[in-house]
Design a protein around this nucleic acid. Sequence first.
DNA 1: GCCAACGTTGGC
DNA 2: GCCAACGTTGGC
Length: 163
Amino acid sequence: MTALPKKYWLFKSEPESFSIADLAKAPNQTTSWEGVRNYRARNILRDEIKVGDEVFFHHSSTNPPGIVGVCSIVKAGYPDSLALNPQSEYFDPADAKDNPRWYTVDVKLMRKFSKMISLTTLKETKGLEKMMVCQRGARLSIQPVTFDEWRIVNRLAVRLETS
DNA sequence: GCCAACGTTGGC
DNA sequence: GCCAACGTTGGC
């Protein structure tokens, strides 16, 4: 069996609803990334993300927004059961168990940065000009990250932590 | 299938 | 709180 090349992603979360501190406290530092209700993001969760892929955890709608750590995918796409739960804010009455519409993956915390890499810093960093999260109006909550962008951001993280 | 109106996201 | 940029909905 040949391992597929690892891919890299950025997941956005509003820390008021789920923060990296919440993930750090979760059992096994693992959570199901539930509640994504956007078709482009759904397609990525369902079709593209594989076990072993790595993820930047990004805090949005906060001041400042930015990348706060690194996660790893421990379970690939599977149906998001919250879509079937009428009690959930993520309930979707059109969802059907035999034909699931929404998907989730499981992520495990690998590293929490001691200092956030702010969006401002990302935007100022050479090589990240085309990174999706740096683009105006890039609302997608599950974003692809290139290998080059991944390396540059990780180097930034090391530099910030030792400065 | 077009597109206007409406709703949401998210940086600022 | 503003508002630009997206996404979704629904009339036609």
